[in-house]
């Protein structure tokens, strides 16, 4: 798979490049700002862009805005945002517009090289990856709560789903069987009054409701 990286901190950029190259990615371009990123995506049409949220010149949300542009103009390029600290509004902005091929992780997660590479691969393949911190924080800000009806175990399952894990990923993480995960997920769908549609769609809806982004 092919990737570009936009990150203004040289050390971190080198680190991410090393991790991705070790994980078998082909690095097409390394840039340090949003403008360079858009040019690189236009030129290389990569499978994924790994993007720092704060970049020159303004050091605010240049990365988020570039990510939204990329997802709109180049649907085949997935975007993984890297952030120094959790800013859940950015994650929400991204997820409200796109529910596939997006991710939002803290920079320190790069150090867990295998997990990080796995998350990049998952997002590049059209999945999602949300930092556990983002999930926890979004949860705190939810106010009215159909989620209160969920059992603690079901909440755990939902949190992991929100983080982008598949059923087998959830099963491994919680050390339970896959059929138990499926049972929990069905229970979650029922409790959240999600319409009976295809499983993937319900899954996305559940996660969005969990994150307080979709109200339907």
């Amino acid at each position: 798979m092919r990737a570009v990286i936009a990150e203004d901190s040289l050390l971190l950029r080198i680190g991410v490049v090393k991790v991705l190259e070790a994980a078998g990615f082909e690095m097409c371009a390394q840039v340090a700002d949003a403008e360079g990123l858009l040019a690189a995506v236009e030129e290389h049409r990569p499978d994924i862009a790994v993007v720092d949220v704060r970049m020159p010149p303004g050091f605010t949300d240049e990365g988020v805005r570039a990510a939204l542009v990329i997802r709109r103009q180049y649907p085949r390029t997935a975007v993984l945002l890297l952030s120094q600290y959790v800013e859940e509004r950015y994650a929400a902005d991204l997820l409200a517009a796109h529910t596939s091929g997006v991710g939002y992780l803290l920079k320190e997660r790069v150090a867990d090289v295998e997990e990080f590479a796995e998350a990049v691969r998952r997002v590049a393949a059209g999945g999602t990856a949300l930092d556990p911190q983002v999930v926890a924080q979004l949860l705190i800000r939810r106010h009215s709560d159909p989620l209160d009806r969920l059992t603690p175990r079901e909440r755990e399952v939902l949190e992991l789903m929100a983080g982008g894990r598949s059923n087998s990923g959830v099963a491994t993480e919680l050390v339970i069987s896959e059929s138990a995960v499926a049972k929990h997920i069905n229970s979650i769908f029922t409790k959240l009054d999600l319409p009976k549609a295809d499983a993937d769609h319900r899954r996305v809806l559940a996660v969005l409701r969990f994150l307080g982004i979709a109200t339907a």
Partner: peptide, 13 residues
């Protein structure tokens, strides 16, 4: 972070 990335790479590769 760079140090941890390098150590993580060493461990993985």
């Amino acid at each position: 972070v760079s140090l941890a990335v390098n150590l993580g790479l060493a461990r993985a590769t």
